[in-house]
């Protein structure tokens, strides 16, 4: 089992190590994921209902209130 895990690790390690173009791509992926999850999601995209209400019951009451009082 440990040998298999070692082989898998070595496979990925050597694969990443031998990359040329791929290194730039990984840099782009990491920057992109950082912007998406550490900046956009954290500061600009809170889950509206999760941040505003504590329980599912409160959330469903709010949505029903919204849905049944159209202007």
């Amino acid at each position: 089992m440990i040998k298999i895990l070692k082989d898998i690790f070595r496979f990925y390690y050597e694969g990443f190590k031998s990359m040329t173009l791929g290194k730039n791509l990984w840099l782009i992926i990491i920057i992109k994921l950082f912007i998406m999850f550490a900046i956009l999601k954290l500061f600009f995209f809170p889950d509206f209902l999760k941040t505003k209400f504590k329980t599912d019951e409160e959330r469903s009451d709010y949505v029903i209130e919204q849905l049944t009082n159209p202007k």
Partner: peptide
């Protein structure tokens, strides 16, 4: 694949917020 991967997750962010 590398540049496009996870661009769709933004849509899920928008579902929850907007």
């Amino acid at each position: 694949f590398a540049i496009g991967v996870a661009t769709g997750i933004i849509l899920e962010f928008e579902f929850g917020t907007n």
